[in-house]
Design a protein around this nucleic acid. Structure first.
Lengths: 248, 248
DNA sequence: CGAGGGTTTGAAGTGCATCAAATAGTGTGG
DNA sequence: CCACACTATTTGATGCACTTCAAACCCTCG
């Protein structure tokens, strides 16, 4: 998923349409409908650090990630932060605000330079009431998300820190079945830590423990996994999912 | 929400219809639609302990609780268990299976004697594709659930054990604004513990700590709260929700 | 090259879990 | 209605996992 143009510009409309056609939420929609989303969409390119919106802000737009990474988070008065999720290309966020009284239920911040589409929630809100395909798609998406969150709760309840990291790494390997995989951590270790509900120091130490116990090789932000079975065995025993949580 | 008859029986149809009319998921549906759900629904009364279904079982029915309590859970190979949620009257569960390949994504067990309706998922599946009101209702429900899960993750990340218990108690008080409230724990302390992601021993000790710090009074399964503000202050500071998580 | 944030490491503390045992509570059959 | 059996709950002692605080290191980028 890439787009050539790097500036907001009406002339890139055809590209936006192409992007939108690939989004699962819109799959099966007629060209008409696709087009009305594309027409109202704006393309932006944001650097790491950009705050897209904060919690309880009026939600005029929902977002579609074309590339890069975005975190969804909540903050307490004391300044503590809980990372709800970290998303990358193909994912949308902020769309549930249409069921939340028009306010964002979390904040969103770019954590790796990102290209995104902003689409007015009003378009979604109006179309979803009249288009059964769209509402079924959205139901499917929310159901998938729900399952994923159930997993999240389970992981945080039953897995210890090294296991959660192992599970995170396995999800990064996606469909790779080959014996040996080398992968690149997609964003800061600090952030992975909070994504997994632990402190940076704990992450550092736990990653070392994991490496010792599963034979993986960590150098900076690249991780080499020679024996996936071994990693799976170590991480996934404490989890109810039949095998690696991959396709969630 | 009560029903007089205690046996599955076609003669109680009118009562089932009445129950169904009160369910949020079905609100706004025409009498026709309500009736087709009611016609296919079966009423059951189950004692504490009854396992309704287990994970990955074919999901032929979804469930509506009329009274009592039901827990949704997942188990690992080691026998560890994560409680996903604990539900009571008015709540439905098992309905997301229609987006999950027809398998239940969790197990369900009655934990306090319960009256329930079983409704074939096929009815829901067929109707939801053709009825925009129903699919919008379901979207709203799932959105609400999603927000609640986000809260859950936040709580388990940012609140300590006594605070989580305090938050749990506050949610039981619902709309009571009066100075003093006495409430009754709705199910076993063991279960509340796992619902909150802690061990029974920890629950016991943490409840004592909470009592000491907030002036609440615990005797067996009844809890007297004289100063709700104080409890709120203690529990909700570590939470991003503006005030008590009540209406979630 | 120097500043600043990300990452690691060390030492010490805290919170929750674990293991073990006592106590309270509940339902049963006599 | 009582005694027993069984489970839920509490309490104590101890251990481990993760956090906290502090400092060093490292890497990137102006």
């Amino acid at each position: 998923m890439a787009i050539e143009t790097t500036k907001k510009n009406n002339k890139i409309l055809p590209d936006i349409l192409a992007v939108i056609k690939d989004v699962e939420l819109f799959s099966g929609l007629g060209d008409e409908d696709m087009k009305s989303f594309a027409d109202k969409a704006s393309f932006y390119s944001y650097p790491k650090g950009k705050v897209l919106f904060i919690r309880d802000e009026p939600a005029d737009y929902f977002y579609l990630i074309i590339s890069g990474w975005v975190k969804l988070f909540r903050e307490t008065l004391d300044g503590d932060e809980a990372v709800i999720d970290v998303l990358t290309d193909g994912h949308i966020f902020g769309e549930t605000s249409i069921f939340e009284g028009g306010l964002y239920p979390y904040g969103a911040q770019v954590i790796e330079d990102a290209e995104i589409l902003m689409i007015p929630t009003s378009v979604l809100e109006e179309k979803i009431k009249n288009n059964i395909t769209l509402s079924m798609n959205m139901l499917g998406a929310m159901s998938r998300y729900r399952k994923q969150q159930d997993n999240e709760i389970e992981h945080r309840t039953l897995q210890n820190a090294p296991q959660r990291i192992g599970c995170f790494l396995l999800r990064l390997c996606k469909a790779d079945d080959g014996k040996s995989v080398t992968l690149h951590l997609p964003y800061d270790k600090m952030l992975i830590a909070s994504r997994l509900g632990m402190k940076p120091e704990t992450f550092s130490r736990s990653l070392a423990t994991l490496a010792k116990n599963t034979g993986i090789n960590v150098k900076g932000s690249s991780v080499q996994i020679d024996d996936i079975e071994r990693l799976t065995g170590y991480s996934c025993n404490a989890c109810s999912n039949s095998y690696p949580c991959h396709d969630l």
